[in-house]
């Protein structure tokens, strides 16, 4: 089974094919087995320093009484100023 390339310098593991990732049909059934490191689900945005270190923020919040800007960043990149969905991220 081949899969198209998924190039992302944050995830070295994604540079290799599915076969190399233990993707294998089971002998017992038709299920496809895929091995995925837990971290993969969280490191999506290499271009944003804020979110590229997202797993460093799983802990206690820092001392401040201000704004957490991560939601606004996420919203800004999903929608334009009129809150219309944008087709592709503008930073690419």
């Amino acid at each position: 089974m081949r899969t198209k390339g998924f190039i992302n310098k944050n995830y070295f593991i994604m540079k290799i094919s599915k076969e190399d990732l233990n993707s294998r049909p089971s002998k017992k059934d038709t299920a496809v087995h895929v091995t995925v490191p837990a971290k993969v689900a969280y490191n999506l945005d290499e271009m944003q320093k804020v979110t590229s270190i997202v797993l460093d923020r799983l802990n206690c919040p820092a001392c401040h009484s201000g704004f957490d800007i991560r939601f606004d960043i996420e919203k800004r990149f999903n929608f334009n100023e009129d809150l219309e969905l944008i087709d592709r991220p503008r930073f690419r």
Binding site: N8, S26, V32, V34, P37, L44, R88
Partner: peptide, 23 residues
């Protein structure tokens, strides 16, 4: 994941019976 990273809904995803081993 590549689609969601690009802020697009996944399209033409092959569906089936997948067993995901999360390590």
């Amino acid at each position: 994941i590549p689609s969601l990273e690009s802020r697009e809904l996944p399209k033409d995803v092959s569906t089936g019976n997948y067993v995901i081993h999360i390590t």
